[in-house]
Design a protein around this nucleic acid. Structure first.
Lengths: 408, 408
DNA sequence: AAAAATTATTTTTTATGCTGAAATAATATA
DNA sequence: TATATTATTTCAGCATAAAAAATAATTTTT
């Protein structure tokens, strides 16, 4: 059928080559031309041509040869000269808006952190204008800290909880906004002189893993985020899969029980309604002699003290979570699943009992199960993911511009 | 990152152009060069070049101009001459191995049915050799019917229930084979002088929809098959998504109930264990005063007669199915879901009550829900899907050969 | 009926990008 | 110092695609 594939003609073709080479360089950190050629299947001659363009555009730089032996094991011959992304080419920001704080991270074009900053907020929805003001403020503060100016920023990635259509920078709904269906991207773009790139926060964790994590090169993997709610990022063929309306991957609201527990989304039987913080607290409170419990650590203490009722709450959450994970595998059969949560306290979601349950709920074939890795990191990683997303978007833009200038 | 994308050099680029043009022709049925150019974004000059290659290779043919007015509304000017796939270029077979019969369909290269043939079998697993013999036999018979010779066949698509790795033509498990992990593709290729292309049968229904259905052009959709079991085919960006080991999309074995009903796969809580034929009969039999019930029509009769217990069985199945569908939407957010079942008797899986339940279980955004269509067709459609798969594979092969010859 | 207008297709020309081969550069080793 | 080795660059040639021009096949107008 009529593929969406672009014509390979002229600029397009070269543009894709440039992208490919640039990605290979960013991916590798530092890499010699000859290795780029090997990895990308582009001839050395073309790599020379493209890299010299990228060099003169200031996007990459050569790296002074260190004394290290050539990675190819060669002992003599002309030494390879490594290339790397030019860190000071552009200043990029990533922002994660969480429940109680906004975290901003400034990175250079290599992805190295320059400075970060957190700003506490009330966990209340605000008007879009207030959100924009807030974002401007945290960016301003971060820039100040770093001794840079707001206008130095080349692009900002913004991660929000909720339902986001990343292709349109559109917010269907977010717990942080007081209304639905906000053209937040447009408002932000109008308010500040650099482009914003919005996405669901779980997708951004996937981006962070892809650009900075140890999954490099992996073409298909799935990230499950465990925070207040449960989110998901799907990477298929190196790309984030978002669905038609941009609101797929709603793992937290897949149903694990017919007419089950009430979820904060108003529906019943959502996974979140069994494993989210509030779900655990809700159950525990009913059983508590001392009244309502509002924090998870108290609960954890009880479990460690051997309280069987509290333990049963966590056990059920674990079993439900296992069911959800198994469904991911049954649907997607990915290479790798990364569980990304902030706190150790979530151990109960990936202990051996849960994994055993997963193994027993997955379609059985004589091929190894997808690997399941656990990464524990906090808001800063989310902000880093947002920055990664912006880095990618900005470099794509710059390279496209390069092609356009070249044509002119 | 290092994309898997091939170098654009020489043959590769042209090959992709050829594929694109050929696909556009097959897709459209009959289409003029100028329209191919428009649809594929390839210049008219290139379309002329490519089509003349395809013409001289015998893959397509010009179609005598009918008196119809030009579809562009043009009343004068040189009339466009339509191109179409040359039906008699190759003979293709599609085979569906079902529980109680094997269905084979011969089609020409345009996808037009030449003849079909069904062969009853015992619903018992057989040895791979016996399966190969059976397949040879049905192909032979079909060819005889059509007045063709076995050796005329250019490729065979084969759809099996079970866990198939289509990329390797490998069968992890199938209810029709008496052992696991069979290199069935290799055995078949060795036994007959044309290539076989194996796939899970639900994927083939997706293929059939893609090539022959009214979803043409749709880039992302999902097919749910309701037969003995419940299957699924996922189309993402025009391609069937299969997962890492080739055994994703196991919708029937996603879990809808923690430690729920026992499934024939040995696990508990699978969707199939609530909506499959055997699941319904199992429940009904317990309640039946007249002993074990073995057929669905009996059950349907009871419902129509107003038996509340039997009705409750169907109702629960419907609710469970709705939950499963909602999960598909929550995970994938597709453009379109096609429910493909053989019998009217399955109405209870897509009546208004079920759809209402789906709507209430899907993450709520102010954008229209994916369309859900119901297609009722039987084994012949499955065989047609198998044939479609083979057609695609064979034409890809022939076009690749064309490129190779051209180079020489 | 001839000329003009219109549309589709083909041919010709032009430009681009990629690669292989050759040349050059930069090092280690003999 | 010469030689071997490896990396990178230069260069010539080729393939492809698109733009422009030419041609073909019609209908409409004169």
């Amino acid at each position: 059928m009529p593929q969406s594939k672009k014509s390979h003609h002229g600029q397009d073709q070269r543009e894709s080559g440039r992208q490919q080479v640039f990605d290979a360089i960013r991916q590798a950190g530092r890499i010699a031309r000859i290795d780029i050629a090997r990895e990308t299947q582009v001839s050395p001659a073309t790599v020379t041509a493209i890299t010299s363009e990228l060099l003169s555009a200031g996007l990459i730089s050569e790296v002074a040869p260190d004394g290290e032996p050539s990675p190819s094991g060669a002992k003599r011959g002309r030494p390879r000269v490594a290339l790397k992304v030019r860190g000071d080419a552009y200043l990029i920001a990533g922002i994660k808006v969480a429940d109680r704080q906004v975290t901003v991270l400034l990175v250079d074009f290599e992805g190295r952190s320059i400075c970060d900053h957190s700003h506490p907020i009330e966990p209340l929805p605000v008007a879009p204008d207030a959100m924009v003001a807030l974002i401007r403020e945290v960016l301003q503060t971060a820039c100040q800290k770093a001794g840079r100016d707001l206008s130095d920023i080349a692009g900002v990635g913004l991660g929000l909880a909720g339902l986001i259509d990343a292709t349109r920078n559109f917010v269907y709904w977010s717990p942080n906004l007081d209304r639905r269906n906000v053209e937040l991207g447009e408002i932000l773009d109008a308010a500040m002189p650099f482009p914003f790139f919005l996405d669901n926060d779980a997708n951004l964790v996937a981006k962070a893993e892809q650009l900075f994590g140890d999954v490099k090169g992996t073409s298909d993997f799935i990230v499950v985020t465990i925070e207040q709610g449960v989110g998901m990022g799907i990477v298929i063929d190196h790309q984030i899969y978002r669905g038609e309306r941009g609101c797929g991957a709603e793992f937290g609201h897949t149903k694990v029980q017919l007419d089950g527990a009430l979820c904060r989304c108003g529906q019943r039987g959502c996974l979140e309604a069994y494993v989210g913080d509030y779900a655990l607290l809700r159950e525990a409170s009913i059983h508590s002699p001392t009244g309502v419990i509002t924090d998870l650590p108290t609960l954890m203490t009880r479990v460690k003290a051997g309280d069987p009722t509290t333990k049963s709450i966590f056990d059920r959450a674990g079993r439900m979570f296992a069911m959800g994970l198994a469904n991911i595998i049954n649907f997607f059969d990915p290479e790798l699943i990364i569980l990304s949560g902030e706190q150790m306290s979530y151990n109960f979601l990936y202990d051996e009992a849960v994994m055993e349950k997963v193994r027993g709920s997955v379609v059985q074939v004589d091929a190894p199960l997808p690997e399941i890795r656990v990464h524990k990191w906090g808001d800063l990683m989310w902000a880093k993911g947002a920055a990664a997303y912006a880095m990618e978007a900005v470099s794509a833009r710059k390279i496209r511009e390069l092609a356009a200038n070249h044509a002119a």
